[in-house]
Design a protein around this nucleic acid. Structure first.
Length: 591
DNA sequence: AGGCTGTACTG
DNA sequence: CAGTAC
DNA sequence: GCCT
DNA sequence: AGATG
DNA sequence: CATCT
């Protein structure tokens, strides 16, 4: 009962877009054939168009990009499409057909191939494609376009100067010494630290809309698999978030804010003029569905999109269509079960309490071991997304010894009821924890064969990812937190929930390093991500390489790994204290 | 044009 | 190797 | 997407 | 940034 | 020095 047996398909513009890869697999699994060469196309071939090239009026965006992305020769292929009058449908029709188990091309699915006059593609002016001419495919007048952009570049001057990180060296001494003593000194009570006020950057009214729009565009390109374009939008958004003035024009934004270029400036202008950007509202529903999935641990953009394309809206639906996804990548079950808890922010005092529990237990196992809270906590955040615990032992460069200690530690914390779940397995962890996995599988009615066995590593991981919570008697003081962002499971997914408002489960990570790599490792795990990227880029531009293991020269010779300050020095940077690392800072261009 | 952090873990 | 995560 |  | 005009 | 890649 192969649905597509004997049918030929061609995917345009190509089949490599991440979402289409799995559709192509499904197609072949159901007996369909994919065209690999121009000449294989015949009059019965079905043309599948990547949905991102289909406008909301069900026509194909025949713009420059569309043809440039072709795997095969665009002109040959497109001429075939026209001469044979091949049927063109959205690529996602495949999922529709599979779900209904019926392969029928209803007339309303067929996309119009005719050149239409209006071109509402938001990013490129149209390409006129002449079907019977074999010659130039793109007569897009780049020169005209460029000239236009330059002429509209009216110079605008903004008198005030804002500085994104002015106050260096102000409390760097605090940060320096806080390292050693962060956890070691009776964490329960005081651990007062000056929290960086400038972190509370209030965004000027009016910029919110721009920020939201850029975020949405970023997500869209992320979903399309274009990580770098997505990053372009993300960086521009960060720039606007930190920009203290109201944005009045696209040109102003481009001049004042780094990572805002011509294209984003234009979109900003449109947004300011019209209050909206064409094509931004339409995809919103599917974006929200993808978003729902990706907030779950171990569901990334790939799986989320796969599910979304198949029309799935909930984990329980996904569970019936793609049971292997859950049985194979079992941590998803815990991401699902603790979906809401793991999206709740954690107050600093709870971080400290949990860390002190860990520290006490650690002391029983090996009194020489040290533990520090790094991550957003160390950067002074009032609310943390997770708790990053960092282990090391003075003089000890044996990572597998520390790994074993972390393993034992996590297991005893599991036995004592603090650890709720593990998100990866070792042999020992498997023995202790296997039954809970089975329990979760059964809860969502996935078959658990008696032979079901997960592979556990033989060596010791340097990294543990856990779900932890405080026992009921200790949690009281942390209750009344008001959550601004409260992400909810959909009702049909609630039956798996292990969430608890009174005593939420928390994400906790264990990391470790060789003692000789203390500085580089701290640098990494203090973060944040944007700071790490920035400083590593800086290292790279100096011909060096920075990792959690150290700073290396171009011959991979270690320059420094123990002394954090020295790493800054070697990179020609003043020391930046942890809380200052929150405002990562691409220099504003021009001064 | 060509780069966009660098690594660990899993299947 | 790709997908996910830090 | 933006930057060099 | 490097190449090119 | 501007523009292209």
């Amino acid at each position: 009962m192969l649905l597509f047996k004997g049918t030929k398909f061609v995917i345009l513009p190509n089949r490599n877009a991440s979402s289409l890869k799995f559709l192509a697999e499904l197609l072949v699994k159901e007996g369909g054939m994919l065209v690999n060469e121009e000449k294989e196309i015949d009059c019965d071939t079905i043309v599948l168009i990547n949905d991102s090239f289909i406008t909301n009026t069900n026509t194909i965006m025949k713009n420059e990009l569309f043809f440039k992305e072709f795997d095969l020769d665009p002109s040959t292929v497109w001429n075939n499409v026209n001469t044979y009058k091949l049927k063109c449908v959205r690529a996602t029709c495949i999922s529709e057909w599979l779900r209904k188990s019926s392969f029928q091309i209803n007339p309303e699915l067929v996309l119009s191939v005719e050149d239409n006059l209006e071109d509402n593609s938001e990013d490129h002016s149209g390409v006129k494609f002449v079907t019977h001419s074999a010659t130039p495919l793109y007569n897009y007048d780049l020169i005209t376009a460029k000239l236009l952009k330059n002429s509209e570049k009216a110079a605008r001057q903004i008198p005030e100067v804002y500085s994104s990180s002015q106050n260096k060296s102000e409390n760097s001494e605090l940060a320096g010494k806080s390292m050693e003593t962060e956890v070691s000194n009776k964490m329960g009570e005081e651990v007062k630290r000056t929290v960086d006020i400038s972190q509370t950057t209030s965004v000027p009214k009016g910029n919110e809309k721009l920020i939201q729009a850029l975020g949405r565009l970023a997500k869209r390109y992320e979903m399309k698999g274009d990580q770098f374009r997505a990053r372009g939008y993300k960086l521009a958004r960060i720039g606007i978030e930190q920009y203290p003035f109201k944005i009045e024009s696209g040109a102003q934004a481009q001049e004042e804010i780094s990572n805002v270029g011509a294209s984003i400036a234009k979109k900003i202008q449109t947004l300011l003029d019209n209050g909206s950007l064409p094509g931004l509202q339409e995809l919103f529903e599917s974006e929200k569905r993808v978003d729902y999935f990706t907030r779950c641990h171990d569901i990334g953009i790939y799986t989320a999109k796969k599910w979304e394309i198949m029309g799935l809206k909930s984990f329980s639906e996904a569970c019936t269509i793609f049971p292997e996804d859950f049985t194979r990548d079992w941590p998803i079950l815990f991401g699902w079960s603790y979906y809401e808890d793991w999206l709740k922010p954690i107050r600093r005092d709870e971080c400290e309490k949990l860390a002190s529990v860990v520290q006490q237990e650690l002391h029983l196992i090996d009194p020489q071991m040290k533990v520090e809270i790094l991550g957003s906590y160390h950067r002074g955040a009032e609310k943390c997304g997770d708790i990053d615990l960092f282990f090391y032992k003075a003089g000890c460069d044996d990572i597998s010894e520390i790994g074993r200690i972390m393993e034992d530690l996590s297991i005893s914390l599991y036995r004592k009821g603090y650890v709720q779940c593990f998100l990866q397995l070792t042999r020992k962890i498997y023995k202790a924890f296997n039954k809970i996995i089975i329990n979760r599988l059964e809860k969502c009615h996935l078959k658990t064969t008696p032979t079901l066995q997960y592979t556990a590593r033989d060596d010791n991981p340097r990294k543990f990812m856990l779900g932890v919570k405080l026992p009921d008697k200790e949690k009281r003081q942390f209750e009344s937190i008001t959550f601004v962002d409260n992400y909810k499971l959909k009702p049909e997914d609630m039956f798996m929930s292990l969430n608890s408002d009174r005593s939420p489960c928390r994400r906790m990570d264990f990391f470790c390093c060789k003692y000789s790599e203390l500085g580089a490792a701290r640098l990494q795990w203090i973060g944040p991500k944007e700071f790490n990227r920035w400083i590593r880029l800086k290292a790279m531009h100096n011909g060096l390489k920075l990792t959690q293991h150290g700073l290396y020269d171009n011959h991979n010779v270690l320059l420094e790994s123990f002394d954090e300050q020295r790493i800054f020095q070697l990179l020609n940077e003043d020391y930046i204290s942890p809380s200052e690392r929150n405002h990562v800072v691409k220099k504003r261009r021009k001064v």
